[in-house]
């Protein structure tokens, strides 16, 4: 079932002397339950495409349709609310809140959603168990390794019960063991919970595990293949 579709999506950065077309007329769709990697060299437009799909940036033209609704027809405030309820994010630098414990970091997004305390506690416990960090739930990010922090970030992304998770270079700061561990967790979540993951990456380890690879170059899709 198709959940995301981009139609003639374009993003041009006009601030520089020579306008840069980071995303150039991309029309691509994603089904529920995909485990897809958007790949390509640095500057090819992976992150920009991911940002446009996630409603973090405004396209120059084109549409992003999620569950049949054009994301950019919404007002900025509605897009923020849409992100809160429908999209999970995992960032390269983990971006956890350092003053909160692992549990509080995961719980935070549910707090924003207004989920009742009891439900929050149950869900946090389950998610931390799924990412293998239930015993570390009271530790702050500074007390965890990079790999552990990124697993907390995955749990946080899933805490919102999103339609899909966008992960921008999630393994770029991790060693091989942590990367494999993280990918195994995400694959397992994809298989057992049918969670949709879309990665922007140039990490070959992610590419190997992804079921679909969308290759970009100069802002265009040059290949779209199934692994």
């Amino acid at each position: 079932m198709e959940i995301i579709k981009t139609v003639n999506l374009q993003k041009t950065y006009a601030e520089s002397a020579v306008p840069v077309r980071a995303v150039n007329d991309i029309s691509v769709s994603f089904d529920a339950g995909e485990f897809t990697a958007i790949v390509g060299p640095s500057g090819c437009g992976k992150t920009t495409l991911l940002n446009l799909i996630g409603g973090l940036d405004n396209p120059t033209s084109g549409e992003v349709i999620i569950d049949g609704m054009n994301l950019y027809s919404l007002k900025p405030k509605e897009i923020t609310d849409f992100r809160l309820k429908n999209i999970g994010f995992v960032f390269q630098a983990y971006n956890l809140i350092p003053v909160l414990s692992a549990k509080e970091n995961v719980e935070f997004i549910m707090n924003l959603q207004g989920v009742p305390k009891k439900e929050r506690d149950e869900r946090v416990e389950k998610l931390l168990e799924q990412v293998g960090l239930k015993d570390q739930m009271n530790r702050r990010p500074g007390e965890l390794s990079g790999g552990q922090q990124q697993r907390i970030a995955v749990a946080r992304a899933l805490a919102a019960n999103p339609k899909f998770v966008l992960a921008d270079e999630p393994t770029a700061n991790l060693d091989s063991a942590s990367t494999n561990n993280l990918l195994d967790i995400m694959l397992k979540l994809n298989e057992t919970e049918n969670t949709t993951f879309i990665f922007a990456t140039h990490d070959s380890r992610v590419m190997k595990k992804a079921r679909r690879l969308i290759e970009l170059d100069d802002g265009k899709v040059i290949a779209d293949k199934t692994n």
């Binding site: 923020t80 609310d81 809160l84 994010f89 971006n95 809140i97 997004i109 924003l112």
Partner: peptide, 16 residues
């Protein structure tokens, strides 16, 4: 900056 960007990205409203 990065943390505030994350908060906005995950859906924290401007008002909050």
């Amino acid at each position: 900056t990065r943390e505030i960007g994350m908060l906005m990205a995950i859906g924290m409203s401007r008002m909050r």
